[in-house]
Structures are given as C-alpha cells and as structure tokens.
Design a protein around this nucleic acid. Structure first.
Lengths: 333, 333
DNA sequence: ACCCGCCGTGTAATCGATTTCGTAGCCCTC
DNA sequence: GAGGGCTACGAAATCGATTACACGGCGGGT
C-alpha cells in the first residue's frame, strides 16, 4: 500500500508538504494540485496507526457493555455507535457478558490500544480496573450503571417519575398486592428502583412487603422465572409484577403461561426497558421506557467533553411509563 | 504513562533488552528479573499503537454487520467477538443498518485503521468497496451472505436439509397452502431459500404459487406484516407461512393477532433464525435454527487462516428444524 | 533602498515500540 | 593458546505519519 513518501516523490515535493496539504494547513494552489493528483493516482490512504502514534489520538472510543445479547444494551450500543461515528470516531465494543473478570480483561485491552475515551456499563458491583482507568487519565464515562467510588460522570435514566406514575396506574386499576423482581442484591440500580417503587406505592397506601421482593440470581429469563415461581407459590400471590429488566420479564411470562394464568386478568405485568419486542407480545406489555438512544448520544457527548477537557457533569434523562394492556387498561389512543 | 525507555533506564539496560524480555526472545535470568521488577514498579504496559506500526499487525479484526439490532446478527456478533477474543484479537464492530453506503463508509475506516482482517455480512446486493478490500490484500471473509463477484470465502448456514424437513413436517400435518415471506428481491439468500422450499414442497405434491411468495420491502416487522396482510386478503389464504427472517416473523404475528387469527389453528407459522425470544412467544414458534455461534467461530477461524496465508475454503454449516407448537404438533419431548 | 515579516517549503526530530547488526565475553575444542 | 561458536546485550535503523525549526523569496512600510 502506498505511503506518504511515495506520494511525495510522485508529486515532487517533500513529505511535509503532502502532510500539510492533506491536513488543511497552509496549502497552496499549484503544489496542492500536484499532491492531490498523486494521492488519487496512487490510491493513497493515510496510515492511521502511524498518525495515532504521532498525535497520541487514535480516533477510537471503547465501549464495554455488560451484556450485548440483552436487547436494551444492544440498542444502547447501537445508539452509542451511531453518535460516535457521527463525530468521526470508531467504536470498539467489548462484551462483558455480565462477568466482571471479562470486563476487566477488556478494559485492559482497550487501554493498551490507547483508545481516546472509554464508556462502561459495568457488570457486577465494582471493579479494580475502573480505578486504574481513572488513574491512567483516560477519559471515562459510566453508562446506565453507577459504580460507587469511581470518580467519573454517569449517564443514565431517571426512573423516579415513571415509577411514581406506575404506582398511581396500578392503584387506579385496583391492584393491591404488587411485587417486584430485581437484579441480584447489591447493585445500585436495583436497589434504587426497589426503594422508589416502594415509596411511590406507599403514597397510595399500598405496601410492598419483603416477601414480594424477589432478587433474581442473574439478569436472565431463568432468573425471572424462578422469582415468579416463588411469588405464585405464596399464600397470597401478587396481582401485579414489575420486572426490572426485560430478560427477567420474559422468564416471568413463561412461568405465568406454564401455570395457565392470564395477563392481565390474573396478574398484571410491567417490564422495565421498552424493547421493541414487547410491543409484539400478547398482550403488549406495559413498560417503563428508558430513552435509550438519547442515553447513547448523551454518553458520547459527555465523553467527548471529557476528552476535550471541558467540564462534564453526570446526566440523568427521564424514563417514562408506556401503558399498554398488560395491566388491564386499554391503551389510551 | 511509562514507556519502554523509562523501564530500560530503571532496570539499567537498553530498550532492546526490555523488548526482548517482554517478547520472550533470548531472555536471561539476572537481567530479566531486573526488567520485570521495573515493569511492575512502573506499571508499564506496552503501547499497542507503536507496536502495530512496527510489526504491521494491529491485533484487531473488523466486523461489519448488516443490522446489529436484529437479534440474529447480535448473537452472531457476540459469537464472533468471543472467538476473536479467545484468539487474542480485539474486534471493531461496525453497524451498517442495512445501508450499503454506510457499510462502505465503515469498511473504508477499518482499512484505514489497518485491521488485520475483515468480516462482512453485506447489506444490499454488492459493494464497490468490497472489491477494494480484496485488491488491498486485506484478508476478507464473508459472513452469512454471499456477494457475487467477490473472491473471498463465505461462511454461512446451509438451510437445505432444514427446508426439506420443514416441507415434510408441514405435509405430515396436512398443510396444503404454504406461503413464504422472503427478503427484498435479488438477495442471494432469499432466492435460495425460496427455491429450496419450493422444490422440497413439490416432493410432497404441494405447490408454492407466486401469489403466495411475498417479498418484503425490508427486513423489518413492518415489511413482514404487510406481506402477511396481502396473504390473508387472498381468496385462498395460506394455511402455513414461513418467514425467512425473525423480524419479519414478528410483524407477521402482529397481523395475525390483529385479525384475531390463531396460531397454529388458523395458520401455521415458521420462523427462520431461532432467536431465544421465539421460545417465549405464545405459542412457541417452530423455527429453522442456524448454528449461530458455530458460524461466528468458523468465520473467525477462516479469517485467521487467510491472515496466516493458509488455504481457507468456504464453510457451510447445516441449519436444522426445531419443531415447536406453531405448526400444530406438540413438541416431541 | 533597506529591513521586517510572512508565506511556502524542506530538513529533521519525534512518537514508542521491534528488529537487524555488531560486539564483548565466555566456553569449548584441537 | 588460538580460533570458532554461543550468548547476552547495546546501538541504531525502522515503521509512517506530524510538526518544530530553518530558510529563501517576496511584498510592503518607512
């Protein structure tokens, strides 16, 4: 493949001139044309590796996602990729598969590749490697999940308003025994959703006792199904269930169907994350929709601010309730 | 961040020695220990950009996927990423979103970044840029979709046996008016699936007339729904429908439900691509399962063979029929 | 007419690693 | 004891770009 020296020779100028023409610094008519002609004839493309070495900028961002096969994160990754490309950056995606060790592995690799900035939706609770990222000076932005003790802005959705609306929605429909399926204990996101849901319900005089709070062992359908099974085996099973992740909701639906229970007649079901699929289930599921694409865009913008040394505060974007038929009310058209 | 020179100074040796110790070439006890100690104390990590410039190997593979939000491709990307990481490669994922122009854009960027090899599941029919990839000498492997005129091995699933089984399955269940929803006209994959399904049905004396062959405008739920609508408006609507992509199947289900038709009682439904979701629909959908993870693995292996100059033929892995309840038969346990 | 400054360009340093080549020291053999 | 082969290591070239610095020529101000 032709390099800058070949172009310089062909155009009869020095490599410095070629570089200047291509980078828009102090170009001039006659020489410029010769250089551009040579570039075209040789099909020259600058070597980004060499450029990155010299400029210490790779033009690449890293994204470590907790579980790429989870549609919520797929859409998030897609949005991030869109935004990054729009700003001239490439994106290296690493999939942690909810395994902290693999996440650390990936972060290490990305640092070695000298990416310009890093986005992480952290699997598990903490991570020694995240501390190293901060220490290394690589701009870092957390996505969707906060990590205690890490000094980096976090971009995520604020579900408080949506959970408040949901509590009102359920109360209005006469549901009195709500339940919630949360992520494995100790994750900040899960704890927050639980607390907020509980207080919002309390405002309507509805209790959320611990027996109707189920922590799934993992963010998978099987985990959701197991929790739902326990709920249904209670002496007083719930009449409404909120699954705080879309995959867990799938498992919950399976268990309901296996027992011949109907949604919403027997149990109302609400899912956190409004992935397209849930509009196609029977019945369509009421959902708490996070502004996924906006989150991705905001994350990239925040990261870019950090890269350029501008101040970059955390971002909270509101989630909102999307009522469908799974709680009993016909959708408001 | 510390560089190799810092390590050399601290250990009291030359940079060459440090490099040799770290790369396992001719190391020796005493010096070696000093170097390793210095590495540890400084927290030194080699700069991959510099290394790539010198060795002309980036340790990075590119993957351009036609639509990342399609669960089949998500799983494929995940499998590719797994396999690549297992072999010490990073993966840069580009999402073409079924837009050929964006695909070319991405391929261009990846070439500029001097990736070691490229995997492409091409959007649309052809692409000028793919020819350039071949011309540039960058190892290329096509994934899931062939591209006529491109001299590169292709890794994809062979659905012939599965379609033969499906025809027998439908015939045995007494379905006599099958239909098929295919991708936009002109895509090799779609044409092949159609032809094979038709001949397999013919073996059972069942016809697949053109009026029951519907080409969707795009690989989206809306496209599938539109085709299903046309089918149901026929004087003799089909009693079994095969959707050759999972998103189109979703749309088809929507239309059936909107009309109050039951699966499988009124219409049998079969989906190409066995994404996890379809085991959770009601009823669970009979599917033609492509060996997604094996495809990803095989693709990476094939690409690696090309990178190392070994012969690398195309790979065809068999898809198989997964009977569930959407055609009327209880699942065989 | 002289000097200053700017413009366009070339020369060479630089980024951080790998790798070739050269050399000093050592052991072994004849 | 001289020569040959190894080993361990350093000096320096190299990858392909960007960029600081130097320099020649030219225009304008006084």
């Amino acid at each position: 493949m032709a390099n800058i020296k070949d172009v310089a020779e062909r155009a009869g100028v020095s490599v410095a001139t070629v570089s200047r023409v291509l980078n828009g610094n102090s170009p001039v008519a006659e020489t410029r044309e010769r250089v551009l002609a040579a570039v075209k004839e040789l099909g020259y493309r600058p070597n980004n590796v060499a450029r990155a070495l010299r400029t210490a900028r790779t033009g690449t961002l890293g994204l470590v996602i907790s579980d790429l096969t989870n549609p919520f994160f797929t859409e998030l990754a897609d949005a991030v990729e869109d935004a990054a490309r729009g700003l001239g950056y490439s994106l290296v995606i690493g999939n942690a598969g909810e395994r902290p060790a693999q996440q650390d592995d990936y972060i290490r690799t990305l640092l070695d590749r000298r990416i310009d900035g890093l986005l992480v939706s952290s699997a598990g609770t903490g991570s020694a490697m995240l501390g190293e990222v901060v220490a290394s000076g690589t701009p870092l932005v957390l996505l969707d999940r906060t990590v205690p003790g890490i000094d980096a802005p976090c971009v995520r959705a604020d579900g408080r308003a949506a959970l408040t609306d949901l509590a009102a929605h359920l109360a209005a429909l006469g549901r009195r025994r709500p339940a919630i399926i949360v992520a494995p204990a100790g994750t900040p996101t899960g704890d927050e959703r639980l607390e907020r849901f509980r207080t919002a319900l309390a405002d309507h005089g509805i209790a959320l006792p611990d027996e109707r709070v189920g922590a799934a062992p993992d963010l998978q359908p099987s985990g959701g199904r197991r929790v739902m099974r326990d709920f249904l085996d209670l002496p007083e099973p719930p009449d409404a269930v909120l699954a705080t992740d879309n995959l867990m909701a799938l498992g919950a639906m399976d268990e309901l169907r296996a027992r011949g229970l109907r949604v919403p007649d027997d149990v109302a079901l609400v899912v956190y994350d409004d992935v397209p699929w849930f509009a196609h289930t029977d019945p369509p599921l009421t959902a708490i929709a996070q502004p996924t694409r906006d989150l991705g865009r905001a994350a990239v913008q925040t990261l870019l601010a950090r890269i350029e040394g501008r101040p970059a505060p955390s971002v909270l974007l509101p989630a909102h309730l999307v009522p469908r038929r799974s709680c009993g009310e016909p959708p408001t058209p």
